[in-house]
Nucleic acid binder design. Structure first.
Length: 526
DNA sequence: ATGTAC
């Protein structure tokens, strides 16, 4: 018996007969009892011995968790199932007897999954917080959950949340917009060309962005030549190069302030694109959530297929952002030779989910080793599910990303954040190596529609108030209200939460000059 | 979020 083990308190449990549950007895399990059922000092043996002595059962052979019906078989089950105040039902071979209460809680759920919150207490939404806790404590295999400062309620699962799991994959925690992300592209425009009233001219130039790009053959070639992937099928490839709805946009920005050496330069004009995998990703989610299915065991054929499709949706989403950028730059810089898309630096990728070791190993490179540290233990395989959050490590290399955008709602600044990995955040683990990927809703869509429609008139081009604001191209009437800045949390407050937590440094900001949402091109734009 | 479900 190790000294450390003997110091830990025993676990109090209750054992009862599965067949006659009024026959019960308390049992204290020493902390050094083994969860491995084949060990000579296993909890299983202690439980069986106690059952024979106190409950007078001749041949105990199976054990269930009362109220859940989960059978304890392997070491993992014993590890998870045995905790203070649990009631174990001892069976002589018969199946579990009793109702399964709390059917939403998976037998492999982790009721002690730790949750970290990055939002300040004042900004926390009760409903979203409940969703965060319920999800963390009822889905199987979760080992770490994070509420980002943009945490807000989703239909079933929260948005602005990160969930780390082992052995299980949960497609709904990633959502339908697989691979949704942001990228900055350099333009050749000078700030003088987009400042003040010139923003209107720039906005007017942005046409031909709606609808399919060129021909099916051209789209196929784009996906194959540029991205080395065959398409997702014409049903979905038809929308490659389109922005989409919701929080997707493209925005022309001036870099107002930025620290030197992080990839963006002060005064330059950039294009920030946020979009995802459109109908393709959503079709994948649909396929793997038939009949309410939420969780896939990692070694199942289904999980392996999902991961493959997930990766290809991520690549498709990246190709989509690049094509959106190409379409915008064609309007803004006509006559320029082809842009080497994807090779434009300051290119930040956000992939919703990534396989990793947990704890993740933060790689070091010669020039960054003073601010990062390697995790000493290699960890075991884990899956990071992100929704409304971006990774702080490059998925390929595990090197810290130098900068990430934190866009506000349209017209508000985009912060330039440098992810941080201080020991106070367990080197980035506490925030699950992720940062909020936007300001997040503070007002439901319905509420925004009802309260803000008084304030805004729907028009094709929203003029900035004052000379330095943003021209907004938004020809879908409902979106004008729904996506209004007032419906969102303040981006500075969200950024301040990330900074206060130690997850990021604010290294600069961009001023949005033209924010493009959508245009109604059927009637020529008005 | 979505070439959407009732």
């Amino acid at each position: 018996m190790s000294r450390q083990a003997s110091r830990r308190p025993p676990t109090r449990i209750t054992i009862a007969l599965n067949a006659r549950q009024t026959q019960r007895a308390p049992l204290l399990l020493p902390a050094n009892a083994s969860t491995d059922p084949s060990s000579p000092t296993s909890i299983r043996k202690l439980v069986f011995k106690a059952a024979q002595a106190k409950l007078r059962i001749g041949k105990p052979s199976r054990v269930f968790v009362a109220g859940f019906g989960a059978e304890l078989v392997g070491e993992e089950d014993w590890e998870r199932g045995v905790r203070n105040d649990v009631s174990l039902l001892i069976s002589a071979g018969e199946d579990y007897i009793g109702v399964i209460r709390d059917a939403g809680v998976h037998p492999k759920a982790n009721p002690t999954c730790p949750i970290h919150n990055l939002a300040s207490a004042a900004a926390l939404d009760e409903h979203a917080l409940t969703q965060l806790r319920t999800t963390a404590h009822s889905l199987p295999g979760l080992v770490h959950a994070v509420g980002q400062p943009n945490l807000h309620p989703g239909t079933k699962f929260p948005i602005g949340a990160v969930f780390v799991s082992q052995r299980w994959i949960h497609p709904p925690l990633i959502g339908g917009d697989i691979g949704c992300g942001m990228a900055w592209y350099r333009t050749r425009l000078s700030r003088g060309q987009v400042e003040g009233d010139r923003g209107r001219k720039v906005a007017e130039k942005l046409r031909g962005m709606e609808g399919a790009w060129r021909t099916a053959e051209a789209r196929e070639r784009w996906l194959e030549d540029e991205w080395g992937m065959c398409g997702a099928g014409e049903e979905w490839d038809g929308s490659v190069g389109t922005i989409g709805a919701g929080n997707h946009f493209a925005e022309i920005q001036v870099v107002e302030e930025v620290e030197e050496g992080c990839g963006l330069a002060e005064g330059e004009v950039v294009l920030l694109v946020r979009s995802g995998s459109r109908g393709y990703g959503s079709s994948i989610l649909k396929k793997y959530t038939a009949e309410g299915q939420v969780s896939l065991k990692e070694d199942s054929a289904e999980a392996k297929e999902y991961l493959k499709e997930h990766d290809s949706a991520c690549r498709w989403a990246k190709a989509n952002r690049n094509l959106i950028a190409l379409r915008f730059l064609s309007c803004l810089e006509p006559g320029e030779p082809a842009w080497s898309l994807g090779k434009k630096d300051a290119h930040v990728e956000d992939i919703h989910d990534a396989r990793t070791k947990w704890p993740p190993v933060v790689a070091t490179s010669e020039d960054t080793n003073e601010r990062t540290a390697s995790s000493p233990s290699p960890g075991i395989d884990a899956y990071i599910h992100r929704k409304g959050a971006a990774p702080t490590l490059s998925p390929g290399t595990c090197l810290p990303l130098s900068i990430l955008p934190l866009p506000g709602s349209r017209g508000t600044p985009t912060l330039i954040l440098a992810p941080q990995f201080p020991s106070s955040t367990s080197r980035g683990l506490d925030n699950a190596v992720s940062l909020a990927h936007g300001a997040g809703r503070s007002m439901s869509r319905a509420k925004a529609l009802s309260t803000l429609s008084q304030k805004y008139q729907a028009s094709s081009l929203l003029e900035p108030r004052g000379g330095k604001g943003t021209w907004v191209v938004c020809e879908a009437k409902d979106l004008v209200f729904e996506k209004a800045a007032e419906a969102y949390k303040d981006v500075e407050a969200v950024g301040a939460n990330l900074v206060a937590f130690g997850a990021a440094r604010r290294v600069g900001w961009c001023r949005a000059r033209v924010s493009y949402k959508c245009r109604d091109e059927r009637g020529g734009g008005r």
